[in-house]
Nucleic acid binder design. Sequence first.
DNA 1: CATAAACAGGACCGAGTGGGTCCTGTTGAA
DNA 2: TTCAACAGGACCCACTCGGTCCTGTTTATG
Lengths: 160, 160
Amino acid sequence: MLRLSKLADYAVVVLVRLSHHGGEVTTSPTLAQATGVPEPTVAKVLKALCAAGLVASQRGARGGYRLARPLHAIPVAAVIVAIDGPISLTACVDGATGGCEAQETCPVRGRWDPVNEAIRAALTRITLDQMDLPSCGGVRDFDKADRPGMMPGAAILAAE
Amino acid sequence: MLRLSKLADYAVVVLVRLSHHGGEVTTSPTLAQATGVPEPTVAKVLKALCAAGLVASQRGARGGYRLARPLHAIPVAAVIVAIDGPISLTACVDGATGGCEAQETCPVRGRWDPVNEAIRAALTRITLDQMDLPSCGGVRDFDKADRPGMMPGAAILAAE
DNA sequence: CATAAACAGGACCGAGTGGGTCCTGTTGAA
DNA sequence: TTCAACAGGACCCACTCGGTCCTGTTTATG
Ligand code: FES
Ligand code: FES
């Protein structure tokens, strides 16, 4: 349930990895090497993050990306919004695919708002630095570059 | 972002509607009429809910469904789990689609757990009765059956 | 000034999944 | 005995998303 987009997961990985480079600009191929995520995908993610202002880009030769803010100032909500965007195309919003024509009589009209809000709050409360520090005993050998088949993907939030 | 399955939305609508029938058994066609959700889909949802123990079924002629517990005892998390199930098929769980072979070195290994937990808590805290009572001024004419094109679908939780 | 490295920002395609439908039992009240 | 209604599958199609690629544009560097 509540499937999180895999791209968003990648974004978190990339951002955390990027933070380990200090303030130095880092190229997307380098990040791809370090994370094991295919390079084009890393580039795609970084572009989105840059557009959202989470990372700053340096164009031209010797260019690359740099964190725009420290990790502890980036809530996961910001990352998710940057990647997946505030997908407004609900059936309720625009009548794109035969949307609900009886909005004012819908039994759950606006009923998801509190749920929505609660989740949003939870996602805003947790920042990226909390996903970086080793707290569950995992191996943290980030210095070893090129991890072959690493594929971040705790991309599903299973309930219970 | 965080797209909620549409079936889960349907389930909430059906459950709330079902609660308005008191303890009387109600057929799925009746519920389909009342909610506007296509009948086969309602049946599908009800089967899942029955399997999860959220509703009780009465087989045979004059059969139907009945709430197994009052609304305030059903957290939305239970509904979502009943419908979508604790989808365990993460890339991390089974190596189905080239899953991560370097789980122990993965940078975000287990990092989503707190987020997961926070969302789960939020979803457990909110119960179905909170999605029923009119609190935002919406029209609540449940007694008028057959709503033509009603299509529940606040199925996307947009963040910010 | 020429060159190459690296980002920008699209278009594009294929696989996977979930919404929706249908069909065949099985149950049990009338 | 009959029929309404649930049980529990199988099934198909549309849509989305992950992933790739291509063509600019920018800017260090020699
Ligand atoms: S991708 Fe499965 S543990 Fe990191
Ligand atoms: S389906 Fe859009 S308001 Fe209910």
